[in-house]
Amino acid sequence: MGALYAFASGPGVYLAFALFLAGLVVQGLRFYKLTRAKDPLALPPPPAGVVPPASPPARGAGAKKPLLDRLLAAAEAMGRPFDRILGTLCRTVAATHPVMTMLTVTFHALLFATPILLLAHNVLLAESAGFHLPSLPDSVADVMTVLFLLCGAAFLYRRVFLRRVRAITTPYDHFVLVVTLLPFFTGFLAYHQIGEYRTMIALHVVSGEAMLVLVPFTRLGHALFFFLYRFLLDGEYSFGQGRRAF
């Protein structure tokens, strides 16, 4: 374990980051090679301030308006930009799956924020590179880690118990989830000195590096491809200008 830790915490870190960054560049270039430049679709801008009703109006006296309609009415009363933002959100998956949307936004935000803003990581960065990023108190990072693990547990619950998710779940999906959760779980155990510390911290470093290396080449690649697909590709749901097409 000593030799493994020595490698993983030394050259392993540089190797993992190099493979991670090189992998992202290679995948990005591959995407550019596969696609071609395209003029953006010239669609007329949406009419200003108009938020169409989310569902057919309730009929009959005293009929209760759906929550979505009441939310939209409140947003419209607040004026721009609230009507636009909420109006748009209510027509996305945020309104169809509010719980899953909150879970996944929290999960992905914490996945990036926790390791980057962790004090211990920044101490190591300052020692080796001479600079560091802002960091959060350990107690805050601890809560963030637990929240992250709970979100992961909720994903696992969906995979195992929801019929629709189970219908398309493969062992690979579980593998990807474990790869993502393991660095956080082992880091949490190491920080709280649960189990043998040296083993736990070695597992933490190795699992973290494994995750980084796997990002560009596995399903975790959606970290990069989400932006390429949703911003660069031409399409109805594009967030960007859609200047490229397959």
């Binding site: 998956v93 998710v165 219908a167 398309i168 999906d173 596995t218």
Partner: peptide, 29 residues
């Protein structure tokens, strides 16, 4: 690429009218 980046999250299900009109049968997702 598309196959490898489908996260199997099933958030696409409700956007399919076939799924919605077939008692949310997963085979229509």
């Amino acid at each position: 690429l598309y196959l490898s980046h489908c996260m199997h999250c099933t958030l696409c299900a409700e956007s399919c009218f076939m799924y919605m009109s077939r008692d949310k049968d997963p085979q229509y997702m």
